[in-house]
Amino acid sequence: MLLINCPYCEETLPELEFAYAGEAHIDRPADPSALTDEEWRDFLFIRTNARGTHFERWRHIGCGRFFNAARDTVSDRFLTTYKAGQPRPDLKEAAE
């Protein structure tokens, strides 16, 4: 069972208190009607599915907040978590 740090609660808690919410940094287009079918497909369905560092979203069921995480999908280890809306972190910094 993974341990996950909620950046809002600033607490590290077991996975049972969290729900996975898919890949992060996929912004819903401001004007979907302007998109081609292919562009809309990419937004809806195409996923990085990274083997290695994966930027993803989780929801802390306790506080209800969605947040972002960088996790290594080979070791399942969390590299960092950060609040929704924040840019992808520089992971070298996060490792220190």
Partner: peptide
Amino acid sequence: DQYTSYSQRGGLP
């Protein structure tokens, strides 16, 4: 399991 992974492990719950 709920999260994507290539670890071939999976959790206990």
